[in-house]
Amino acid sequence: MSQIYYAPTHEYIVVDGNVGTIGITDYAQHALGNVVYVDMPEVDDEVEAGQDFGAIESVKAASDLISPVTGTVIEVNDALADNPRLVNQDPMANWIIKVEIADPTELDNLLDEEAYKAICK
């Protein structure tokens, strides 16, 4: 059973076992507008909760991608390199990285769907 959590910086993480799939929320892709570039880490890079692991750029804005958890990158969504606009089309299907979560207790610091929706208002 997978479960979804949100960061107040507009990243989501879908957790399945000890693997977390990280992307940006629909609200975030909407706010950014046309995404033109996603700067992604490499497989085996370490990410840290609350620290940036990359950046996402639209024509008018650039925003850091903040990791919701600490862990190791196990997969990167290479499709975004060629077609970053996939993030606009479906940000859930078009995740950015998958990480092996080091400390599942960090998930307790994140928001559930309801709490996240509240901050987007």
Partner: peptide, 13 residues
Amino acid sequence: TLQAREQHIRREK
């Protein structure tokens, strides 16, 4: 182009 990289957006970094 690539103006988003410019410091006025990610300014403190």
